[in-house]
């Protein structure tokens, strides 16, 4: 058995035809089907980046686990951070079906060969950030992820379905947290507003560069990996968020944000794309801290992985001996 099979010389065209026909029918590609190398590479990059984002995404919120203001909030946050770990694992599993190993993926993350979402390079400075991340960051993630449930690669779509089911809890707990703070003191309301002011622009960046600067989008859409362009999803997110902000009683920090009757959507200011590029290149406020933390966890955990392997080998040997003796 081989993973994704290389097209044999001579008959490559027939394989490509079969692949194209599957995509054309709207059917899913499954791991052991032949696929073009570009399709496989694009998926490895995208799914790995998505998995890494879930794992790195545990850090900004994990920052508040020991300082949550009540046992209720702590239990909720713990469950949420645990979910992010689970989401990372679903996605790593999907990525492994493309013939790349889990260890390789982890190593590509910590040595910087693969990326994760730029949003997680921003710090969580106040407890309100826990709410804002749930509302805006997970809200943006939901916008991105719901269409990906229909992505053309089977394992990726199935992982997305599981994730989307759980993501709604993330967004709602965040929004409820912010609502609670907005019903509190002036100081608490100011904390919420300050947090929203900081996260609004990075949240808009989560959808990636504008379509004109996103050279891979057309191919990804032709392959059915992506279902919507970055700008379409960003627009959808803004339109969803405006009424939520109003209900919450916060101001989104964009003076030019207004409804445009003609296009049936909001006009809004683009985020600072230079800042985005800087963060992607590794110069965001927390890039080195996030990777250093992940590397430390990976290296400090090595003895646990080795000990478990040794224990499993020993248990097997003991079981074999007993069988032999019986």
């Amino acid at each position: 058995m081989t993973t994704t099979q290389p097209a044999p010389a001579g008959d490559g065209a027939a394989y490509l035809e079969g692949f194209d026909a599957t995509i054309e029918r709207g059917d899913r590609i499954e791991p052991r089907d032949w696929m073009p190398e570009g399709y496989r590479k694009t998926l490895v990059r995208q799914v790995a980046q998505h998995a890494h984002s879930e794992i790195i995404g545990m850090q900004p919120e994990g920052n508040w686990l020991t300082r949550a203001p009540s046992l209720r909030r702590k239990a909720i946050l713990l469950a949420k951070v645990q979910d992010e770990a689970g989401h990372g694992l679903y996605l790593y599993s999907a990525c492994e079906t493309l013939g790349v190993s889990r260890d390789e993926l982890t190593e590509m993350l910590i040595d910087g060969r693969q990326k994760y979402s730029s949003i997680f390079n921003y710090p969580t400075l106040s407890y309100a950030d826990v709410g804002t991340i749930g509302w805006l960051v997970d809200g943006a993630a939901i916008c991105n992820q719901v269409p990906l449930c229909r992505t053309s690669f089977g394992p990726y779509g199935r992982a997305m379905i599981r994730i989307c089911k759980e993501e709604s809890f993330h967004q709602r707990q965040g929004y409820e947290l912010l609502m609670t703070m907005m019903r509190g003191t002036d100081e608490q309301r100011a904390m919420v507003q300050e947090s929203v002011d900081r996260f609004w622009w990075p949240a808009l960046m989560m959808f990636g560069p504008p379509d004109a600067d996103s050279p891979n989008t057309a191919q990804s859409m032709a392959w059915g990996i992506k279902r919507n362009t970055n700008d379409d999803l960003r627009q959808r997110f803004v339109d969803m968020t405006v009424p939520q902000a109003k209900a919450l009683g916060v101001t989104l920090p964009d003076p030019d944000l207004r409804w445009n009757e003609e296009k049936g959507g909001h006009d809004f200011t683009a985020p600072d794309w230079d800042e985005f590029m800087q963060v992607v290149k590794g110069n965001g406020p927390c890039n080195s801290q996030r990777i250093a933390h992940r590397r430390k966890a990976w290296e400090d955990g090595a003895w646990v992985r080795e000990a478990a392997t040794a224990y499993a080998a020993k248990s097997r040997a003991v079981a074999n001996d007993q069988e032999g003796a019986a």
């Binding site: 058995m1 081989t2 013939g99 394992p155």
Partner: peptide, 22 residues
């Protein structure tokens, strides 16, 4: 490279063998 029904590699390519895939 061997792989399972699901396509993933059975063992890691890293120096230290990965835990098996289930």
């Amino acid at each position: 490279m061997t792989s399972n029904a699901n396509g993933a590699k059975a063992a890691g390519a890293g120096v230290q063998a990965e835990w098996p895939l289930y």
